Structure formats: C-alpha cells, structure tokens
Simulated assay, not measured.
Amino acid sequence: MERCLRLFKQDYFISEMNTVTVEKRDHQQPFPLHDHDFNEIVIVCSGNGLYHWNDYVYPITSGDILYINQKDVHGYESVNNLKLDNILYLRESLFLSSTIESYLPKVTAKHNERFWRIQPSYLKLLSPLIEQLAVESKKNNLASVHLSEALFLQLVILLDRIKQAPKLALPTATHQLDLLFTALHNSIATPFNIDVFCKENHIASRSLSRLFKSQTGMTITGYLQKRRLCDAMSLLRTTNYSISKIAAECGYDDSNYFSAVFKKLTNQTPSEYRAKFNDKKE
C-alpha cells in the first residue's frame, strides 16, 4: 500500500510550548495526499478546488469550514485561486482543553459533522481574530501561548455561534445562497433546473447566478458538476458499483457522457481512476 506524505508538528509550531498556530495560504497549490500529527481547522476564504478527505472527495469554495483530525488523509487538486486560513492545534495539549472541547466536533464525529459552510459575509468577522492569532502564535513565551489559546477559543465559539444561528437571521442575499446550496446538494442524482428553483423561491435567476459566481468563482452548473463528480470519485473508491450505476447515482443518464466529463476533469477514465486506488490497496 502506498504511504501518503506525513507532516510533523515540529515543522509548524515554533516551540514545544506552543499549542496553536496559523498557516495562511493565499495561493494554495495542488497538494498530495498527506496526514499529520496535529489537528487543523481549514477555512476556505476564496476560490475553489477539489478536496480529497479519507475516502471522500468534495468541491470546496468560499465559506467552507473543515475540522481535520490527526491522521486524516487529505489533499487538494484542481485548485482555482484557492485561498485558505489553516489553524493548526494540538488538541491533547491545550491548556484550555476542557473549555475548547465544548466547541469542537467530537474526535469520533463523522465527516458531515466536521464539514459545513458559513456564508462568505461571515468571513469578515473571522479575519481580524485570525490575524491576531497568527501574530500571537509566533511568540514562544507563556503569556503569548495562553493568549493564543484564548483567541483560538474565541474563534471556535464564534464558528459554533455562526453554525447555530437561525437561518432567518441571515441577510436576503446570503439566505438565497443558503437555499441554493441546499438544493444543489439534494440534486446529485436528480435534474436541477435553476429557473424552476428561482420561481419557487421568488428569486431573480440572473442576479442569483451573478451572486453565486462572485462568491465561489464558479457557475452554478460548474459547481453542481464538480459536486456530482466528487461523489462519483468516492463511489469509485469505496464500492464495486458498475460505471453505469455510479453515473446514474450521480445524475448522469448516459454513462458514456459521464465518462467523457469525468476524463475531462481528472485526465483519466472512471475505470482508470478506480484501478489506481485498487492498486494502492494491494
């Protein structure tokens, strides 16, 4: 079995005393599958890409939040102007562990409990806090370590509050995006018609399309296609379903067309993609 790249805490934390640090990636490049001996919160600030996470693949874009555990295998590909704020932390060594734990997903939480999204407008609330944490976490005196953890606690509380905030409290534009993302995520195996969606929700389709493109860097159709292909990648890696069954599960009536779209994105056919991961398991 092929070993993935391993990252170590001593290469990111400036001393053994420090328990939190920030790694900003203004131009995240494709990065191979890897794991590490620390935990991480990934905040997607802008752009988009494909995110491999254990046996799953997700399209990520502005506002996505991911809680990565130690030894999770993950990596990036097909990135497009992807900007990330990565907050690294040593979960078992935090001085404020008992309090911080209340605002983090459980270690045993499933993927869908550790991957969610906030409306991009909320990123402006997080930015000053992350900037202050980035500065403080590069100091190795005890006061700065404690302040870094206090700032980290503020960050995880704020993220939790945003997640729990009533949907009705969202501004009109961001509420429209929230409705659209929900509809897209529920349309993997079924056709999605933007005009019908907008008519049902009393939204102007052209203004929604412009809003979606400005926030994600993708068209609505492009995002849905990536989402469907990500699900197909996961099924190819984790099931023995036929190519035609996977195509149908991911919204493609024609398996030949599905294969053509898949190859255009990944530079390999679905069968070649599956074989590559089967070889790694042997």
Rank of each mutant, 00 (worst) to 15 (best):
Y67S: 08
P59S: 01
L265T: 11
E2N: 09
E282K: 07
F181G: 01
T19F: 01
L84R: 08
N69D: 10
S255A: 14
R25Q: 15
V196P: 01
W116D: 02
P120I: 14
E92S: 14
S102G: 02
L147G: 05
Q28K: 10
I203Q: 04
P270K: 01
I162E: 01
L151I: 03
A143K: 08
S205T: 07
A189S: 15
Y58R: 12
K213T: 14
S46M: 07
K106A: 12
E272K: 11
W53R: 01
L153V: 06
K167T: 15
S127K: 13
N267R: 09
S97V: 03
Y76H: 06
N141S: 04
P32G: 11
N69E: 13
H202Y: 05
A248R: 10
A109D: 14
C45V: 12
D178E: 14
H185W: 08
I100E: 10
V156G: 02
T190Q: 14
R161V: 12
M17W: 12
V156M: 04
L177K: 00
Y12H: 08
N81S: 12
F262P: 10
T221W: 08
K276Y: 10
F95R: 10
I246H: 05
Q132D: 15
T61S: 11
V156Q: 04
M218I: 04
Y252P: 04
F181E: 03
